[in-house]
């Protein structure tokens, strides 16, 4: 199972204060060199092991992705995802 959630209102920081929410929700143009910051929550027994194997195989992925090993994705709480967005990640990847 793998799901990707997008940061709510990622574009909000550059918007003027009085911008109504309907305007904020319109997707902005993405600059060509923009790299998203993604946090990946990976299950120790499958996705994290797969990431490990990928490392052994010398496969690479962008540096904007940070992997967090979990004992099981069942350990993932709503608040982990929300905290990640609050701290400014652009996407949360849950793999398990």
């Amino acid at each position: 199972m793998a799901t990707v959630a997008e940061a709510p209102g990622k574009e909000a920081a550059s918007m003027p204060v009085s911008t109504p929410i309907s305007t904020i929700e319109k997707p902005n143009e993405v600059p060509t060199n923009w790299q998203p910051n993604i946090i990946a929550f990976a299950c120790h027994y499958c996705a994290f092991a797969a990431a490990d194997l990928a490392g052994v195989m010398r496969l690479t992925y962008p540096t904007g992705i940070k992997v967090i090993r979990m004992p099981c994705t069942g350990k993932l709480d709503h608040i982990y995802v929300l905290r990640a967005f609050e701290k400014g990640v652009d996407g949360v990847f849950v793999a398990g």
Partner: peptide
């Protein structure tokens, strides 16, 4: 406690969206 924290987080995100 869990839901209170989630609600607080959602409100903080909403405040950030509104620029408040």
């Amino acid at each position: 406690a869990k839901e209170a924290e989630i609600t607080a987080s959602l409100l903080r995100i909403r405040a950030a969206e509104e620029g408040v």
